[in-house]
């Protein structure tokens, strides 16, 4: 289970209090009725699904109820930072791209030790 820092409550709380809410920093097109089907599919369905650094939204649904953004590594599941909704994409110090690939449970265990 993940331990997640809510930037509004300023507390580390268990994942049970949170809902994952998809990729962050996706802007709804202004004139959504005027865009093409391709543009709509891009906005509505296509996602980066990164292996490594990802930016995503979470909601502290059983806490303050607010949405916020997080930078997380999808290989180690480690949260690199969380920040308030509305802020631009935050650079993560020291992480430019994918962390070292860790494929198996056993290897992850090894890293943890």
């Amino acid at each position: 289970m993940l331990l997640i820092h809510c930037p509004y409550c300023e507390e580390d709380r268990s994942e049970l209090e949170f809902r994952w809410a998809g990729e962050a920093h996706i802007a709804r097109p202004d004139a959504i009725a005027d865009i093409t089907d391709e543009e709509f599919a891009e906005y509505f369905f296509l996602r980066n699904n990164e292996k490594g650094l990802t930016y995503e939204r979470w909601r502290h649904i059983h806490g303050c109820g607010r949405f916020f953004n997080a930078a997380r590594d999808t290989v180690s599941d480690r949260f690199l930072m969380t920040y308030k909704a509305g802020l631009p994409k935050q650079p993560v110090p020291g992480v430019s791209a994918t962390e070292k690939t860790v494929e198996t449970y056993e290897q992850t265990e090894g890293d943890a030790r």
């Binding site: 993940l2 994942e15 599941d77 494929e103």
Partner: peptide, 13 residues
């Protein structure tokens, strides 16, 4: 699990 991950492991809950 509810979030995207490539970790081949998941939450105990």
């Amino acid at each position: 699990d509810q979030y995207n991950s490539y970790s081949q492991t998941g939450g105990l809950q």
